[in-house]
Amino acid sequence: MRALLASRNLPSLAAAAILAVLVVAGSVRFEHFASVGNLSNLLGDYAFVAIAAVGATFVILAGGIDLSVGSMVAFTAMLAAWLVDRGWHPLATVPVCLAIGAALGAAMGGLIHAFALPAFIVTLAGMFALRAATFLLHDQPLGIVHPFLSWMSRDAAVPLGGAALPARAVLMLAVVALGAIVAGRTRFGRRVYALGGSPRSAEAMGVSVGTTTVAVYALAGACAALAGVVFASAKRAGDPTALVGLELTVIAAVVIGGTLLSGGVGSVGGTLLGVLILGVIRLLIDFQGNLNAAWTSVATGVLLLAFAGLQRALAGLGGWADRGTGGAARIEPRLPR
């Protein structure tokens, strides 16, 4: 029994161990690596990633996938910049971007459910369509100047042990906490887990699959939109070429954080751990100085594959899920899909 529990927690333990090793290795190699200042910078720089990853966690928990997240963040960032450029107050852009992000997410979720389409193809189309829409909105980087943004980046910070935690990091932590509560402590969260664990059983047990699917993708869209606004305010610009490949970072963070790609198992808190690991790797590569930034995406991809493989291996060993005779009528197809 203990062995079972242990094997189920193995990915999370591995993730925590990797983070520890990375931090220790960084501290040994570089002075000032493990400092509060670096931590708060990291949290600030990766705030938008973590916010988007919270939404993606819900999608993957529900057994889906969202490849559109990078384009969605870039699109809403551009939308926010564009609105500010036309004289809007930055805060006023937040509800607009959130509403549009949620609506676009809901539309994708609706297509997935109504026409029984694979989630990856709908969100892949969304990824390209939204990227093109970003160019349509403004085909050049668009810098924005606003007193509020200057104040945000200069003064809006929480003191943290001699350093300053940027406001966007505080917002991110709040979103993660809220996400954790919604996933763990609400009926909606239970439905999401149920849907990812077994759509057929969930439906038979009275979970409305359509409503839940649409809601999950809408939530992911809203999170990506919030991430977009945060990104625009941090960079004080919108950029149509920005964040290509963010979907890999986000999915990797979710999977490294212990969420099963097949759905039904995982946590929002774990996703934060995944984001931190990817952030520390980025920090190490930056500290190294002479390394190409492309190593970040290579490391991210390798980690994602390693954890996805670990999940499959544990499921295959049966230690994780001894389904007996497939009691819940789970017939593994001979061919992986």
């Binding site: 609400t186 009926r187 664990g197 059983s201 009528a329």
Partner: peptide, 26 residues
């Protein structure tokens, strides 16, 4: 074909969709 969610706990399965809540929290 037993209609349970294999990845959820026993308690969650028994009460899925009928969870007792207060202020929206289970």
């Amino acid at each position: 074909e037993i209609d349970l969610v294999p990845t959820l706990s026993v308690a969650d399965n028994i009460c899925l969709g009928r969870e007792p809540t207060r202020l929206g929290l289970v």
